[in-house]
Simulated scan of single mutants.
Amino acid sequence: MKENLELKKVLDLIETAIRPFPKAAMFELRERGYDSLFEQLISCVVSIRTLDETTIPVSLALFAEARTPEAILKLSSSRLTALLYGSTYPEQKTNTILGIAKAAVEQYEGQLPADYTKLTDLKGVGPKCANLALGVAAGHKAISVDVHVHRVINRWGYVATKQPEQTLKILEQKVPVELWTEINRLLMPFGKHICTGNLPKCSTCPVLPCCEQIGVTKHR
């Protein structure tokens, strides 16, 4: 019989387990000084369907030329697209990023508002990116659910959902507010390197005693 899952205790165990692995991209970029709401939101757009190993260098290359909405708008569409190559759908992301920069300049005097509704009103900005940018850059209590968080939380049996948006809503009800930002910071690298999609490392996982291993048919 599995132990009861105490979330704070589990997150502390995960903190230790992920120490040898790279930080999640947005947190790594914040540590490198790219900590404005605009930079974090743009990097999150870059990260969509893109590995962190690509997101970080692409973001760094972009910010080497333009770190503000005004500077982004001075780039040609073709130059911005070229800077985004390596990430998925660079042309689509070019349009999204230009739209965000234009809104920042024309509607908000160059400073994006730290407001979930206003951020998600921007074309191409979904709940994951809005919450992640608000949590990392603005210090807001926000839960960001990506594919890793969604998979891990369901695998534990902590939730039973089909879509990340459903997972987000339930986590906002179940998780203490002080842990909201920690969810993505810890579970993203945990899901990428330990509780992987295929062949998770269950035999050495510190969460195994209280994980229901839902959906796991083979593991390491």
Rank of each mutant, 00 (worst) to 15 (best):
Val45Gln: 09
Ser47Gln: 13
Phe63Arg: 04
Glu70Trp: 08
Val46His: 00
Ile42His: 04
Asp35Cys: 08
Val46Met: 05
Val45Phe: 01
Gln40Met: 03
Leu75Pro: 13
Glu53Gly: 14
Lys74Phe: 05
Val45Ser: 07
Leu37Glu: 03
Ala61Gly: 11
Ile72Pro: 11
Gln40Cys: 00
Val46Ala: 01
Leu60Tyr: 04
Leu62Cys: 02
Leu62Pro: 05
Pro57Asn: 13
Ala64Ser: 15
Val45Leu: 12
Ser78Thr: 11
Ser77Lys: 12
Ala64Leu: 04
Thr81Ile: 11
Glu53Met: 10
Ser43Ala: 05
Glu70Arg: 15
Ile42Cys: 00
Leu37Val: 01
Ser47Arg: 11
Leu37Asp: 02
Ala66Phe: 02
Thr50Glu: 12
Leu83Ala: 08
Ile56Cys: 06
Glu70Asp: 10
Leu37Tyr: 00
Thr50Ala: 13
Ser78Cys: 08
Leu80Ser: 11
Gly33Arg: 06
Ala82Gln: 12
Ser77Cys: 12
Asp52Arg: 12
Asp35Tyr: 06
Glu53Ser: 14
Pro57Cys: 11
Glu65Ser: 11
Glu70Gln: 13
Ser59Trp: 00
Phe38Met: 01
Ile56Leu: 10
Ser78Ile: 10
Leu83Arg: 06
Thr50Leu: 11
Val58Ser: 06
Glu39Gly: 03
Ser78Met: 08
Val58Asn: 07
Val58Thr: 08
Val58Cys: 04
Val58Trp: 00
Leu73Tyr: 07
Ile42Tyr: 01
Ser59Val: 02
Gly33Lys: 07
Ala64Ile: 03
Tyr34Asp: 04
Glu53Pro: 10
Glu39Trp: 01
Thr81Ser: 12
Tyr34Val: 03
Arg67Gln: 08
Arg67Ile: 03
Glu70Leu: 11
Ser76Lys: 14
Thr81Asn: 09
Lys74His: 10
Ala61Ile: 04
Arg79Glu: 13
Val45Glu: 07
Thr55Cys: 06
Ser78Pro: 07
Ile48Ser: 14
Ser47Asp: 13
Asp52Lys: 10
Ala64Pro: 05
Ala82Thr: 12
Pro57His: 06
Asp35Ser: 13
Pro57Met: 12
Ile48Met: 14
Val58Pro: 05
Arg79His: 10
Glu39Arg: 04
Arg79Phe: 09
Arg49Ile: 12
Asp52Asn: 13
Ile42Leu: 04
Thr68Ile: 00
Thr55Tyr: 06
Ala66Pro: 06
Leu41Tyr: 04
Leu83Pro: 10
Ile42Trp: 01
Asp52Ala: 13
Ala71Phe: 01
Leu73Trp: 05
Cys44Gln: 02
Gln40Ile: 02
Leu83Cys: 12
Ser36Trp: 05
Ile72Asn: 09
Ala82Asp: 15
Phe38Gln: 01
Asp35Thr: 05
Ile56Lys: 11
Leu73Ala: 10
Ser77Gly: 15
Ser47Gly: 15
Ala61Thr: 09
Glu70His: 10
Glu70Tyr: 07
Leu75His: 11
Cys44Phe: 00
Glu39Gln: 15
Ser76Ala: 13
Ile72Lys: 09
Leu75Tyr: 07
Ile56Gln: 08
Glu70Ile: 09
